[in-house]
Design a protein around this nucleic acid. Structure first.
Lengths: 199, 199
DNA sequence: GTCTATATGGAGATAGAC
DNA sequence: GTCTATCTCCATATAGAC
């Protein structure tokens, strides 16, 4: 499975051969079929684990300590960090959906809808508490998730910023998108500044 | 070429067969090879045209009328609109880079670097003019472009929001990311509100 | 559970007539 | 510039010994 993740991430699902996966795993091509019935099932397993992880990350943030600001910060921080640290896996999880069989895609799509719901929940909570100012929750939630997901497309581990730095910067950007920061410190305050306590 | 764009967008480059492209174009498979030497060259042409268009869109916005706020708004609006309206093409342009031959990828990469430079220029101009407040220009520019590009991945023409509505919402989000809006109207003002005149 | 060997199908690309 | 017919290669997946 690790070999398949690497190969799919490098070349894409369709450009990857079962021979490539097998040789990375130190096996013969035939040995793969003991563990997975088809190449697509291998992709499905990878995709399922990754999507379950995404839902878990966001759920833990959404139910975590603190108020909406802390929860949104936690959600973006850990979601971005995962997409950066595990950009290889994430790339397969996020960009190879069209290669899934129909019934597998349906199952995965349900998990993806769940991530949208969780993000909208965090934003709505913040608006209700008067801590966010968001003209259109649905679009904003989608934009935030889009921003996080796309990290896996361009992230380069040899680049200047590591996952933690990137995650912090993105969390600050997202707080701005959500109109957080109260009415007092706008414009002048550093984007990293966060109101509220706890952690 | 239009047939190839459609096929690549639907299935991905590697999953698309030359027979599929040919039949969409109402040709025999052999006829393709009169116009393009290989399937990869077809992708390269599509990618090149798309990237040149991206650079042109951003350049026109960056050199357009008004100040930094108007220019950033114009850049995001037209860039997002293109990724939504032409999401089929954009998907191929943005997500099939790994299928390009080495020398073609090098040429395309130069154009992609150019888009980053243009966006950083707009942001730097705004910071210098005191109209943007941006802790880290490079990351912010990359995030803004990432946000726009990723539109082509998820955009659904049958969804509730058309390209124009989406573009306007994204422009408003991006102004927030840039810390625009002066120091006066923070928190309370609708995200669509823009300071500055001209147009 | 792994191997070697292979069945089977379909891919990209070309030949040569028109 | 387009066609039909086809070459050649390599893909996924299986068979059967160990």
């Amino acid at each position: 499975m690790r070999a398949a993740v690497e190969a799919f991430a490098e070349r894409g699902f369709h450009a990857t051969t079962t021979r490539d996966i097998a040789s990375r795993a130190g096996m013969s091509p035939a040995a793969l079929y003991i563990h997975y019935r088809t190449k697509e099932e291998l992709l499905y397993r990878i995709s399922l684990v990754g999507h379950e992880r995404s839902v878990r990350i966001l759920t833990e943030a959404a139910e975590g300590p603190g108020g909406p600001v802390e929860r949104l910060t936690a959600a973006v921080t850990s979601f971005v960090r995962w997409h950066a640290e595990r950009h290889t896996t994430a790339r397969v999880v996020q960009y190879e959906l069209s290669a899934l069989a129909e019934e597998h895609l349906a199952e995965i799509s349900a998990l993806r809808r769940r991530t949208g719901e969780i993000m909208r929940g965090i934003l709505a909570e913040g608006v209700a508490a008067g801590q966010f100012e968001i003209p259109h929750i649905r679009s904003t939630a989608r934009a935030i998730l889009s921003l996080c997901i796309d990290v896996s497309r361009w992230f380069d581990p040899s680049g200047p910023d590591g996952p933690d730095v990137l995650a912090a910067r993105y969390a600050a950007l997202v707080l701005r998108m959500a109109g957080a920061g109260g009415g007092a410190e706008a414009g002048g305050a550093p984007a990293g500044t966060v109101t509220g306590s706890s952690g």
